[in-house]
């Protein structure tokens, strides 16, 4: 385990995935993992998902069911397609012009890859936190209330003020609640009108989480949210994820296996070539993996 800790982890750019060949046929890989069964309806259900970037086959025939109100960690080496997979769940892959997606992704039993999918509604339900903190160059308050404003739930504009429809209390309440949920309130409550660009990296990332929570999503996708942060900020984010799992379905991509082991309920392991190799309860996957290759990866023999 200690070897992996010290390796320098470079994240592949999701726009230009690294093409890798496994040297094994897909059949061999598929046969290695068993179904993971859980009680209740899955929140997200993915079936036979393939993603191509141009000629690159970035994700191969992935099927996975993700239960509600839990933390699911996606781990694997660089370029294994875990970020790509995550971006399929709220169709952010649509931003990449060369990407092509085959297969099915269902949110609460509704297929999201079909004509007539309301992307606005989808992304309201399935929120996302990115690898690098990306606050808007606006005040902290405006960052948090950005989503609800755009969805018409909050309006504090001049016109709304004139017409007496301004709902500033509601905004204040929402901002406070979201920032508290994201464990940032105590650090910024006296400077909500400051530009968010002036916050530290860890604070910015928690602001991005607060921004996501303000829209009241059901699922939160996190793409290595702590990879750009120092250990203290990382610990804060991890505690936060633990809290969030009470109410939300969290799917988190991470490089860091210790982190996955600490925070997740289920773990899915992607290995090179965009294959999902193993999926199950976190303890099971880490302590008694089905696949020899997953064991090798987890014990740091490669990766």
């Amino acid at each position: 385990m200690s070897e992996t800790k010290s390796t320098i982890q470079t994240e592949s750019n999701p726009d230009r995935p690294v093409s890798t060949t496994t040297g094994e046929t897909e059949e061999e890989v598929r046969s290695e993992w068993r179904e993971y069964a859980f009680d209740g309806e899955p929140k997200l259900s993915v079936e036979n998902l393939d993603v191509y970037y141009g000629d690159d086959h970035a994700l191969r025939d992935v099927s996975i069911d993700i239960p509600e109100e839990s933390v699911t960690a996606l781990i694997g080496p660089s370029g294994c397609g875990k970020s790509t997979f995550l971006r399929c769940l709220n169709r952010m892959n649509d931003r990449i012009k060369s990407a092509r997606v085959d297969g099915s992704v269902e949110v609460d039993g509704e297929e999201i890859y079909q004509d007539g999918t309301n992307l606005v509604e989808l992304r309201k339900r399935v929120g996302m936190v990115f690898q690098n903190p990306n606050p808007f160059p606006k005040s902290i308050r405006d960052n948090v209330s950005y989503g609800p404003r755009k969805h018409g739930d909050i309006d504090t504009g001049v016109l709304a003020g004139l017409l007496g429809r301004s709902n500033e209390e509601r905004e204040a309440e929402l901002v406070e609640r979201s920032l508290k949920q994201a464990a940032l309130w105590d650090e910024v409550d006296d400077r909500l009108d400051d530009n968010a660009m002036g916050l530290s990296g860890g604070q910015q990332q928690r602001l991005c989480i607060a921004r996501c929570l303000a829209v009241d999503p059901e699922v939160i996708l996190m793409d290595e949210p702590a990879s750009a942060l120092d250990p203290i900020a990382t610990a804060k984010i991890e505690d936060l994820i633990d809290e969030l799992a009470q109410e939300y379905t969290v799917v988190i991509v991470t490089h860091n296996m210790q982190q996955a082991a600490r925070i997740s309920d289920q773990t899915a392991v992607f290995l090179t070539g965009g294959n999902l190799v193993e999926y199950g309860e976190t303890d099971q996957v880490f302590e008694n993996p089905e696949s020899q290759r997953v064991e090798d990866y987890i014990t740091g023999k490669f990766g």
């Binding site: 931003r95 990115f130 996501c212």
Partner: peptide, 22 residues
């Protein structure tokens, strides 16, 4: 930066809203 635009779109805004406000 693209990350800023993605950040807005991921909150469930339309392309036009992202363009005009971000």
């Amino acid at each position: 930066p693209e990350s800023m635009k993605s950040g807005s779109l991921a909150l469930g805004t339309t392309d036009w809203q992202t363009m005009t406000t971000i």
